[in-house]
Structure formats: C-alpha cells, structure tokens
Design a protein around this nucleic acid. Structure first.
Length: 325
DNA sequence: ATGGTTTTTACTGCGTC
DNA sequence: GACGCGGTAAAAACCAT
C-alpha cells in the first residue's frame, strides 16, 4: 500500500501535503528532520527529503550497468554478459559446436534417424560458422582499409570501392595463401587508382603493415584474378595534390596540366613513371609562373629523385616548345 | 633467368646571393 | 660558402620476354 502510494506521489511537489506523514510512519522512509517523504536521486547517488531537501543518504551504489541502451539492438551490442572468450579460435569460441559422438545427453546412442538428422545439422552449422569466419575476416580487413585510407587522406567513396574489391576477393577465395593485410592494401591501392585519386605504391606501402614485395605480388594477383581494369595512372591526377602540398597557385596547377597534355601529344608518356612526370610538370609550371619551388622541394613531396624531375622537365619544355610553334 | 629500359645514387662543375 | 641547378656514370629497380 505504502509503496504504490509513494510512487504516485513522486514527481510533483504540490501534492505532497499532510497525507504523506501518515503513510510514512512504519518504515524508514521519512525525513528525520521534518518527517517529510524521502526521494532517491539516482543520478547523484543520494537519498533526499522531498520536503526540506535534507540529504539523508549519499554515495549509494548504482549496481546497474555503466552504459545506457536506447533500443534492444543497442542493448545486445553493449551488454558484456556471456561466456568467457578465447582468442585461439577465429570466433573466440562463441559459436556452437555439435558433438560427433552420436550420443545423447545421457550417453545413449542415437537412433538411425536421429543420427542422420545430427549429421545434417553439423553440415549446416559448419556452413554458417565458416560464413561467420568470413564476416570476421571482412571486418578486420575493412578496419585496416579504413585506417590506411584515412592515413592517406582518401575520401569515403574510395573506401567503398576498396571494400567492394575486397569482398569480391574474399568471395572468389583469393585469400588462402595470402594475408588479409596484403589483399586489403591491394584493394585500397586499386580503388584509389580507379577513383582517379591515386596514391603511389610507395605511399600506400608506407601506411601498410606488409613489405613491398608482398604488396606488389598480391596486387598483381588480385587485379588479374578479379579482372579489374586499372588504367595506368594519369599523371594529371597527382597534380592537384602536389600543387596544394607546395602551396602553389591555381594558375600554375593549370599550367602543369597543360604541360602534361602537351607531353601526351608528343607521346612521351610511355614507360615513364606518372609520378615523375607529374612532379616535373608541377615544377616546370611553378617556374613558368614565377613561384619559388626548388627541385628538392618537389622531389620530397612527390618522392621522386631530383634527377628524374630534371630529365622529365627538360623533355616537358621541349614538348611544349614543339607544341607552341 | 635475362636483357633492356627507367630510376636512383653519388659526385662534380657552374653561377648567384 | 651555401644553395640551387644541370650534367654524368654506375648501380639498382622494374618489366616483359
């Protein structure tokens, strides 16, 4: 009786008048000071008098979870209740295994029909479990892709394509014999190139956790097996990044593009590294627009040797000279 | 595995600030 | 004298055969 009454009183102050004096006589729910009704303030861990505000009890322990859930899905996610896990199994031992002994819980042998049933169940359970292991594999790979992509400053859509490529690789069973890291990195590298915001192999390698040889090997393999069409990187696609890294004006950026176009006309792109050409074009353009950039600056930004820049940019100016006449 | 091509490394000489 | 630039030769890396 008293419980339900208190709960109805709780909340509004105007209702708390003389009545609560009598309802609170037998238990400790009255304020020692004024005899008023007590309220528990869960947020502060205190019990206070609703009448006079006296703090009767403080530092009470909240035995609830420290997290809050706003729907059941979130509750499932955040709850940490369950069996202990082990890292020794791909699924941390959380999935179901069906015994092989063909005995029931009392140790009795199963009937023929039951045995067949259990066999079918094992088959399906195994299928779902391996699917799960693929999911986990994917999750780890996607995490890696995300990490590397943000380290390289690649936009969302590139990560998307990279994930798609990785999924395809996974579905086509390209993973066995190759590391998750390697395939993930290759996917990202390919995706960046396809999206027209290429990062050089060196740059990608720098943020990955595998060595370069493995990366090139895996990359080739993935591209070949998946039949990805990755056009040779367009030197122009490196220009904006280099230009902005060097704080160059838009004008010189445009000049750089023109230089590359002129070079393409001359057919001097074949076999040369696109990065080197882009670097040279940026350098040449900066020179033409009287902005101060040294060869070593460019070489550092583009990770290309100064010699290559010199060679390329010499050729660039020739090509442009021919085109201009 | 090999040979041809491209890039890098290392070094040198020249002119300018 | 340090710096930026241009050139060269040899080594290394890369690629297709």
């Amino acid at each position: 009786m008293s419980n339900s009454q208190i709960s109805t009183y709780r909340g509004t102050e105007t209702e708390t008048t003389e009545e609560n004096h009598q309802s609170a006589d037998e238990d400790e729910l009255t304020c020692p000071e004024c005899g008023g009704r007590l309220e528990s303030d869960v947020e502060h861990g205190e019990t206070i008098c609703a009448e006079c505000g006296l703090v009767v009890d403080e530092d009470s322990i909240d035995r609830g979870p420290e997290w809050r859930a706003f729907d059941s899905a979130e509750r499932d996610q955040k709850s940490r209740v369950g069996a202990p896990t082990t890292n020794m199994m791909h699924d941390k031992g959380l999935s179901t295994n069906i015994g092989w002994q063909d005995k029931d819980a009392y140790g009795n042998s199963l009937s023929n029909r039951q045995r067949q049933k259990m066999q079918r169940l094992r088959t399906w359970n195994e299928r779902f479990r391996t699917r799960d292991s693929k999911e986990r594999n994917l999750k780890q790979a996607l995490g890696e892709i995300d990490r590397m992509a943000s380290a390289l400053g690649l936009p969302e859509n590139v990560r998307e394509t990279a994930s798609v490529i990785y999924r395809r690789a996974l579905n086509e069973d390209l993973l066995p014999g190759r590391s998750i890291e390697g395939v993930a990195t290759s996917s990202l590298y390919a995706a960046a190139r396809q999206a027209g915001v290429p990062r050089s192999l060196d740059e990608v390698h720098a943020v990955s956790r595998i060595d370069k040889m493995e990366l090139t090997r895996t990359y080739r393999y993935v591209v070949r097996e998946l039949g990805l069409e990755v056009a040779p990187a367009d030197p122009k696609s490196y220009v904006p990044r280099f230009a902005s890294d060097l704080d160059l004006s838009d004008e010189s950026e445009i000049r750089a593009r023109e230089l590359i176009d002129a070079a393409r006309e001359d057919g001097m792109l074949s076999g040369k590294s696109p990065v080197g050409l882009a670097a040279a074009a940026v350098y040449a353009a900066a020179l033409l627009t009287n902005e101060k950039v040294t060869q070593s600056d460019v070489s550092e930004i583009a990770n290309i040797s100064e010699v290559t820049i010199r060679n390329r940019y010499k050729e660039l100016l020739e090509a442009e000279g021919v085109a201009a006449t």
